[in-house]
Design a protein around this nucleic acid. Structure first.
Length: 162
DNA sequence: GCCAACGTTGGC
DNA sequence: GCCAACGTTGGC
């Protein structure tokens, strides 16, 4: 594993797009479009790199949880749904010449042996600094290497096996 | 379904 | 540039 690998947490409502949906995609790859928050956009455009680790989080369900991991298959590129008038993510301020929104591709990697629910994340002092617990609404957020390894172990995955 | 948190918009 | 209004997210 490259030492400069970064880690992220991506949120998705499983009713719209679930981790099982990701797994079933050809090659396990999904274009992560439609992000319309400036802070998340900046991460996608400037910080997220190929090979980075992604915690896949299911939100807006009775038991929100990290359910598995993915990796970044393609780094930031312009999100074409922004200039598609038929898209629910259409934004007329963004054009192919001057794109306003960015996306990455993610690829399925491993399903956790045990889901790690939000309630459990909250109860580990090691995770008290997680962005998820402080700015819960951010849909793409950084995770530290220590948080990554800790959460993988909670999920039943040996971090050194990834 | 409620509502708190908070990001975004727009009037001034 | 401030800030009130508004819209959205997401836990519960």
């Amino acid at each position: 594993m490259p030492s400069d690998r970064r880690f992220w947490l991506f949120k998705s409502e499983p009713g719209s797009f679930s981790f099982a949906d990701l797994k079933s995609r050809p090659g396990g790859i999904e274009p992560w479009d439609g992000v319309r928050n400036f802070q998340a956009r900046n991460f996608l455009r400037d910080q997220v790199r190929v090979g980075d680790g992604v915690l896949f989080y299911h939100s807006s369900i009775p038991r929100p949880a990290v359910v598995g991991i993915a990796r970044v298959a393609r780094a930031g590129y312009p999100d074409p749904t922004a200039w598609d008038p038929t898209s629910r993510h259409f934004d007329p301020r963004s054009t192919p010449a001057l794109p306003g929104w960015f996306m990455v591709d993610v690829q399925y990697e491993r399903t956790f042996v045990h889901e790690v629910p939000l309630d459990e994340l909250k109860h580990h002092p090691e995770l008290a600094g997680m962005v998820l617990l402080q700015r819960s609404r951010l849909s793409v957020q950084p995770v530290t290497a220590a948080e990554w390894s800790f959460i993988l172990r909670l999920g039943g995955i040996a971090p050194e096996s990834i």
